[in-house]
Simulated scan of single mutants.
Amino acid sequence: MKLKFDSFIMALLIAIGLAYFFPQAVLFQDGQFLEAITTVGVSLIFFFYGLKLSITDIKYGLKNWKLHVVVQLATFTLFPLLVLALKPFITDVVQENFWLSFFFLAALPSTVSSSVVMVSIAKGNVPAAIFNASISGLIGVIVTPLWMSLFLDFHTENVFDDVYWGLIREIIIPVILGLLLQRYWVGWASKYSRQLAQFDKTVILLIVYSSFADSFSSGVFRTISRSYLIYVFVAVIVLFLLIYGILYVLTKYVLKFSIRDQVTALFCGSKKSLTHGSVFGKFLFFNNPSAGLYFLPLMIYHAFQIFLVTVIAQRYHRRKEAD
């Protein structure tokens, strides 16, 4: 099996470049036009997700509760606590933004499609991966804002309620509508799954462009140095390897999972969702000039996890074929 170039990563870089050279689009009609497009786009993403969600696979995956507990605790507890442990060492505003961007990454849910694909390649427990990836996004709607509320000012003008209502309106309600209409449109969603995936990516690119255009316009990136970017890259790699290493030891030597369950725990528990991160960031960092900074580790983590987990998945696949 050969490694495939991920064109979406290049598209993310192009979106950031466009935001740097042409940030004017985000100012059109005071940003309301782009905001309306992304709002409708996000709602459609999760409506289509509801259409494609397999209730049968989720019910089947419920049986392996130990695996689910490990994945969800890794996603929403281990990740944030590892980053939280560094909070006492923050001494200035630049370090605060750096740390908060990683805490945002740590508080996010796991990916859906890529986790399931990688687990499938590695011959892992696919139904359990579908369950964990699906439930993770729904749990994140509640847990991620709670974690972030510890360090963002959500306590004025009902901002906290606005964040939750926004996430419910653009994620939960569309998913429910998709599930209700699944019996009528599931064939259509399956037939055009590739086009729907491209639509998802386009909406994410618009959100990324909007966030970075705001940050470039406000001049927030002028306050950081090249060494800042190097630190972000290094910290992303260290965080991934630390999480992956802990899960590897826990699932193999402590809990003694089977290879199939171990693969599922490693891949689902170590990943973070750029889709959910983009959507959550819309509400958590609304009108925040540092939004681009907060998205930076997430995008680098997204690229790194795809590259490294693809390599690892192929190794598991070859080992399984040899056995």
Rank of each mutant, 00 (worst) to 15 (best):
L229I: 13
V203G: 05
L196S: 10
T202K: 09
L206Q: 04
Q198E: 12
R194E: 14
V232D: 02
T202I: 14
V232P: 00
L196E: 11
V203W: 03
V236A: 04
S218F: 07
D200G: 01
F199V: 06
Y231V: 08
F221V: 05
I207W: 04
R222K: 13
L229A: 14
S217E: 10
T223Q: 12
I224A: 04
K201M: 14
T223K: 11
V234F: 09
R194V: 12
I230D: 12
S215V: 01
V232T: 07
F216V: 04
A197I: 09
V236T: 01
F199H: 08
Q198N: 15
F212K: 00
D200Q: 11
F212L: 09
T223P: 00
A213K: 01
L205S: 07
A213Q: 04
V203A: 09
S217A: 15
D200L: 03
F233D: 07
S227F: 10
I207D: 04
L206I: 06
I230A: 14
Y231K: 10
V208Q: 05
F221G: 02
Q195M: 14
Y231T: 05
I204Q: 11
T223M: 13
S218I: 02
T223C: 09
F221P: 01
I204G: 01
T202S: 15
V203K: 02
L229N: 10
F216P: 01
T202Y: 15
S210A: 14
D214Q: 12
V236S: 02
V234P: 05
S227H: 06
